[in-house]
């Protein structure tokens, strides 16, 4: 792939997106498509502004749940990975459950959880479940990927198992963990939204996905689009922030954070 100059790299996608939106707008106007079938971009923009008080409150609810779910997944995933790294037996016994939670579609679990807990808790649990696995699996891999010779050297210098863990294995695992966290961040939002939709059909909730369900019942299609845009932006923001953190932590030493070689 040839490299674009810096300006073009920003400008070109922006121009393409503008053209796409323009085509959409033209299509809606020229074909006189009613807004309850397909709203025009300008109408969606106006809805975003007019409904901002409602939507922003919902966005905050969803974001908080997402971050709480991610935080729980981080603690649980890293904690369990550390346990796995210390004992293969524990891994052997517990890993199947982690896999079961991962492979069972969250949309199928959510209705069940709603029976046992409140809708807020259900949403949180769902966000946690989906974000948990990539963090666990990546961190476990990372803790195992420590250079054998470095481990031998630490043994030679009489390092305690805590020193090996803290000074060596956890640092070697950092790039893996951060990659897992980046995936987990996006998944946490998806988990929260899926659960909100499940809870929304049950008639409760305050998050963005609930607003989408509600808008759908009322045939308020522009608001559905507006909420969808906010969700997409939230997802991008979470990914950007986590990528930024990852870059800051790794830029001095890890290949993944280095600039591609100049040609």
């Amino acid at each position: 792939m040839s490299r674009l100059p810096a300006l073009g790299r920003i400008l070109l996608p922006a121009i393409f997106m503008a053209a796409l939106l323009m085509a959409w707008e033209m299509l809606v106007r020229l074909a006189a498509i009613p807004p309850y079938v397909l709203p025009s971009p300008t109408l969606i923009g106006a809805t975003l502004i007019n409904d901002w008080p409602l939507l922003s409150r919902a966005l905050v609810v969803t974001l908080i749940t997402t971050l709480e779910g991610l935080a729980l997944a981080l603690v649980g995933g890293v904690g369990l990975a550390l346990l796995f790294a210390r004992s293969r037996t524990i891994e052997w016994v517990l890993y199947p459950y982690a896999v079961i939670l991962q492979v069972t579609p969250i949309i199928a679990i959510a209705p069940l959880l709603l029976i046992y807990t409140s809708s807020e808790t259900t949403v949180l649990i769902c966000a946690w479940i989906v974000a948990f696995f990539p963090i666990l699996s990546n961190t476990t891999t990372g803790l195992r990927a420590t250079d054998r010779n470095l481990l031998a050297l630490f043994t030679l210098y009489g390092a305690s198992s805590w020193q090996v863990l803290w000074h060596l294995r956890m640092r070697a695992a950092l790039p893996y963990f951060l990659a897992g966290l980046r995936i987990g961040g996006g998944l946490s939002l998806i988990g929260a939204v899926v659960a909100e939709i499940a809870a929304g059909s049950a008639g409760a909730g305050g998050g963005l996905a609930y607003r989408i369900v509600e808008a759908q019942y009322r045939l308020n299609i522009p608001r559905m689009f507006a909420a969808l845009i906010l969700l997409a932006v939230a997802g991008i923001a979470i990914f950007a922030v986590l990528s930024g953190i990852s870059h800051l932590l790794l830029r001095r030493w890890h290949e993944s954070a280095l600039a591609p070689p100049e040609r």
Binding site: D147, N149, L150, A152, L153, L156, L168, R171, A172, L174, R252, W253, H254
Partner: peptide, 14 residues
């Protein structure tokens, strides 16, 4: 006693 390996075996993050 110290040991030097064939590879430099340095910690890349340090």
């Amino acid at each position: 006693l110290s040991f030097v390996f064939q590879e430099s075996t340095l910690m890349p993050w340090a």
